[in-house]
């Protein structure tokens, strides 16, 4: 059985002298990561992942403000890559829960009718669908951005330690697609993260996970604490959402070890929802069954 592939592209030059992500470098990282994820150099993953006419949502995580959210430079570069691969700009939606959080994280909201849309679920005329989606232990309303505006989804999460969940990455990012995430943080978000992902509005749309690991909060997350935030300079890619998050967890563990911190397991905070996700058939948990390709940006 083929291993699940996860691609980690890193660059020491990811930031400009001013401390912002360098768009040119980010774009090259995306190009390389997407190419490897799509099956090999020279392939056009967007063509394989999306059908003509797809409307693609890029779900970002902006709850952490400018300091520790999915970087707009990454989200917009990814949107441009999708457009270059043939998707119409008007069919690409960068989105999260609220317009305010997007703005606070450095995005310029665009809820208009042209270009790449950047919008919160709370944008005029959107909100949450009126019907509860009841699936396993989940009972939630889902964002209409996900369910009505998009036909396919990319989870573009920031990689962070999470006090309750252990790790917040691509799968937990979809907590931002439901109206009541605060109700799902018991038991280290297990099984809620896996069950929300498994719910039809997400599972039927999710195509690709990308983790923004340019800056990784490896302890005391999900809030930003400079002391435990590392400039990792990475982007992580994969079609298997569980495998991507599993590798993300490993990155956090390496950074924790480097700082002399105990493992999440030792702190009783291991993200058990990933094993649950594997049990639900959502992907691969075992690192031995994951092919991790690590490259430096060319």
């Amino acid at each position: 059985m083929a291993k699940a592939r996860v691609v980690v592209v890193r660059s020491a030059r990811a930031w400009t002298a001013a401390g912002d992500p360098d768009p040119a470098v980010i774009d090259r990282m995306l190009e390389r990561g997407l190419a490897l994820t799509g099956g090999g150099p020279g392939t056009a993953p967007a063509a394989a992942l999306f059908r003509p006419g797809d409307r693609v949502g890029i779900k970002v995580n902006t709850i952490g403000g400018r300091a520790i959210s999915t970087r707009p430079e990454v989200a917009l570069a990814l949107a441009r890559r999708l457009a270059a691969a043939g998707l119409a700009a008007k069919d690409i939606f960068v989105w999260d829960r609220t317009t305010r959080e997007l703005r606070d994280a450095g995005y310029s909201p665009n809820a208009g009718r042209s270009g790449v849309r950047v919008l919160g679920t709370d944008a005029d005329g959107l909100g949450y669908g009126p019907e509860l989606v009841v699936h396993l232990g989940v009972g939630s309303l889902f964002s209409r951005v996900l369910t009505e505006l998009t036909t396919a989804s990319i989870s573009l999460a920031i990689l962070k330690d999470h006090g309750l969940a252990g790790v917040t990455a691509g799968m937990k990012n979809y907590f931002g697609a439901i109206h009541n995430p605060n109700k799902y943080h018991d038991s280290r978000c297990d099984p809620a993260v896996a069950e929300v992902f498994d719910a039809p509005p997400v599972r039927s749309r999710h195509r690709l996970s990308v983790l923004d690991a340019l800056t990784v909060q490896f302890h005391k997350g999900p809030s930003y604490h400079a002391r435990w935030a590392a400039r990792y300079g990475g982007l992580v890619f994969g079609l298997d959402p569980v495998a991507v998050d599993r590798v993300g967890w490993e990155i956090i563990e390496r950074l924790r070890a480097g700082a002399g911190l105990p493992t999440l397991e030792a702190e009783g905070r291991a993200p058990g929802y990933l094993r649950t996700a594997e049990r639900l058939g959502l992907g691969t948990f075992d690192l031995a069954a994951i092919e991790t390709i690590e490259e430096d940006e060319p």
Binding site: N180, N182, K183, H185, P222, S223
Partner: peptide, 10 residues
């Protein structure tokens, strides 16, 4: 709760 987080009550 950490900074910017809400309780279970929301």
């Amino acid at each position: 709760l950490g900074d910017k987080e809400r309780g279970y009550c929301g």
